[in-house]
Every structure is written in C-alpha cells, then in structure tokens.
Amino acid sequence: MIVVTGATGTLNGATVQHLLERLPAEEVGISAREPAKARHFADRGVRVRQGSYEDPQALRESFAGADQVLLVSGNDPAADMVGLHRNAIEAALAAGVGRILYTSQQGVAADGPYPPAAIHAATEQILADSGVAWTSLRYGFFSHSFVPLLGPWRETGVIAAPADGPVPWTAPADLSEATAALLSGERSFDGPITLIAGEALTLDDFAALASEHSGRTVERVVLGDEEWVADQVAGGVAEPAARFMLTMFRATRQGHFAEHDPLLAELLGRSPRRVAERLAEF
C-alpha cells in the first residue's frame, strides 16, 4: 500500500488522482488531518485515516500496512517544521514503512539565503540517518508562484523588482504526475532527485514573454533590495512577508536554482509545461 499525506491539498490530491489511474483503490491510502475533506477519495475505495504531524500515534496508525509513504513538507513559518517532519519520519519507521518519499525543493542548502532550503536540508539529513530507504523529491518552484514577483505589470507596463537569477518554474500538475509514476514503481531512486521544468527564466525573460503576450512593451526595472521592500510595504504587504520574498531574489541571483535536470521530462515522457502557457492565465 502507498499512503499519501497532504492529499486534501491540490498537489498531493492530484498525485492521488494519478495513482488511482495506475493502481487499484485498495492499494492507496491517505493520512489526513481532517478525513472529512478526503471523503471523495474514500467514496472511491481509498483508505482514509486521521493523522497529523503533531500526533505521532495517529500517524503510526494511519501509516500501518504501508510499503511507501509520501510525506508532504510543511510550510508554517511559525512552527518547528524540522521537528514535525521528524515526527512523521519516526512514525513511518515505527509503522514498518519500507520507503519514505518527501516533497523537498530545488536548491536545498543548510546555509543559503532562502530559509525553507535549510528546513529541507535538515529533513533530508534526518532521512539519511534513519536507515530507511528514502527519496527526496526536490521540486522546482511552482509555476504560479511567479505572479507576486512580477508585480502589477499589466497596469504599469513594468516589472520592477530586485536583481534576480534563473528559476525553472515548474507546473504542479507535472510534479504530481511524475510523483505518481515514482510511487507506482515505474522507476525508483535513492536519496535526492531534482524534478524541474526544462527552462529556467529570469525576470528579463518574463518581461519579454509579457511583451509578446500583451502586445506592448513590458520593461524590466531593477530596484535595490531596500527600495523594493519599501515599495512592497507601501503597497500593503507586511514587512516580514516582503523580506521573506526578498530572500528568494537573493537566492536566485546567487544561482541556487539555476541547475538543469532532464528527469522530470523523462518521467512524464514529454516536455514539461512551459511558463508561457501559465503566463497567459494571469
């Protein structure tokens, strides 16, 4: 059996949908904080049990009988995410799970400028030290996440933001499909793997795409870090949120997300979706 956490969310919910296209429903399970939100899967014969990273005992029960578990990474900035991830890993070990897959992120680094990268690095180390077979899925940044970085370019004709670097913005739909392929045994990997789109874009590239899409010239203007933060705060963004976003710009321009990897395309059997397809939606 494969047990998936976070399946009431969009990404892992889509992963479960893809699994059900490959496997009988009785081979798929869900560990959900609120099982009622997974009723649509239960109605299809999927095993749904209550479990949360804050409750290790419930997690062990929800993981019982699983050969593989897909652990979704948490993103609550106020929580001890490394500790919660440790709870989930230890619960899987106690339940006798054979392999743990963990949704990590491209650019894992214990000492990089982007704080979530250190959380993923610490979690991957826990997995490495656990003795269990494990695969860390280092996803590319979700392709819809570029929207707040571009600002109100449709109204202003300008993308005004700090200096940046290339990022392979990746469609969540592609990631969920590839993850289901891995879980269903089409291919297996030990340790970290990188799942990213085939093109890495800068905001200069976005300006060119936006110009083509809108039929008018969209200019890319580079702002100083503090000037950009001040503009964000003046526009109603909380300063802590603006400074968190700034860490991503700093990481991109230091090249933390500049790598290329063909694995996602190989798992999909086609080219991943391109950013131009998503830009037209916003």
Rank of each mutant, 00 (worst) to 15 (best):
F41M: 08
G83Y: 08
G96R: 08
N75C: 08
L84S: 02
L71G: 04
L59N: 02
A42P: 12
V97A: 11
L93I: 15
A66S: 12
H85E: 00
G96M: 05
A58Y: 07
Y53A: 15
L93C: 07
L93K: 15
Y53W: 13
K37V: 12
R39P: 04
R49Q: 13
D80V: 06
A92C: 09
G98P: 02
L70D: 12
S62Y: 04
A88M: 10
A94N: 01
V72G: 05
R60M: 12
G74E: 09
R39N: 06
M81F: 06
H85T: 00
H85N: 03
A79Y: 04
G74Y: 00
S73V: 02
V82P: 04
A79D: 14
A66K: 04
P56F: 07
P77M: 14
G98H: 08
D76A: 14
R60G: 09
F63W: 03
G96V: 13
A88K: 00
N87M: 03
M81H: 10
E61Q: 15
A38P: 02
Q57H: 11
P56I: 10
E61T: 12
D80Y: 08
E90C: 02
I100P: 06
F63S: 01
L84G: 02
D76T: 14
G65E: 08
A42C: 13
N87K: 03
G98D: 08
S52M: 07
G98W: 00
L84F: 04
F63E: 00
H40S: 15
H85I: 00
L59P: 07
P77H: 14
E90K: 08
D76S: 14
A88Y: 00
R60S: 10
R44Y: 09
R44C: 02
